[in-house]
């Protein structure tokens, strides 16, 4: 049973103030989103209608600490079809952003923050990769991590990383 004393009536406003979450109050729970969802086809753990309903009710902790908000594949099927222009894919992102600020970060994203900080990209470039590229006549590519690391710092994301910064080259010797 849902106890009304456990609900946070401000949660929907918090979401509406988050970039991407502005249209949450327009939802009239028609379910077009869930009916359109390719993730819902393979698992009943994910239902955008249910997430929006829970958020509107004020089930803040249940939503933010859940695993299911992270199951959106960002395909924008619901986003395109929503008759109320709730902009659901962006809305789910807004909820994820709030969850992250409350300390709920899936481990995969912590690893990605570290990769971006150290390499400026998600996939590290090794010497082997550039050798293979050269064999195919493709130009070498180089990592440019410095500016990306600064962006992670300025926007407060760098602290979410899983590990300490990689040692500078001098220290590694």
């Amino acid at each position: 049973m849902i106890e009304s004393t456990q609900l946070d009536p401000n949660f929907k406003d918090e979401i509406a103030n988050e970039p991407g979450g502005e249209h949450i109050l327009s939802c009239f729970t028609c379910g077009t989103c869930t009916a359109s969802c390719p993730v819902r086809v393979v698992t009943d753990r994910y239902s955008p209608r249910k997430i929006i309903r829970m958020a509107l009710l004020g089930l803040k902790e249940e939503v933010l600490s859940s695993d299911f908000i992270w199951l959106c594949s960002a395909c924008y099927s619901c986003h395109e079809r929503c008759p109320q222009d709730v902009r659901i894919t962006e809305l789910i992102n807004a909820i994820k952003n709030i969850a992250v600020r409350e300390g709920h970060v899936p481990p995969a994203f912590r690893v990605q923050v570290d990769l971006l900080r150290d390499h400026g990209r998600l996939i590290e470039i090794g010497d082997y990769d550039n050798e293979r590229r050269a064999e195919l006549g493709l130009p070498a590519i180089h990592e440019q991590p410095a500016e990306v690391a600064e962006i992670l710092k300025v926007s407060g994301t760098i602290a979410l990383g899983a590990a300490a910064p990689a040692p500078a080259e001098d220290d590694a010797k």
Binding site: E18, P19, G20, W70, A74, N93, A94, K96, N97, V100, V105, F109, Q112, V113, L116, G120, R121, L122, I141, H142, Q144, P145, E147, V148, I151, L152, V154, S155, G156, T157, L160
Partner: peptide
């Protein structure tokens, strides 16, 4: 060789981080 990650992976983590990476 100045391009880096587009920012997509960070969208769910921090919308602004992703936008800044794209803008870069």
């Amino acid at each position: 060789d100045q391009f880096g990650c587009c920012g997509y992976p960070m969208k769910g983590v921090n919308h602004r981080t992703a936008l800044l990476m794209a803008a870069r």
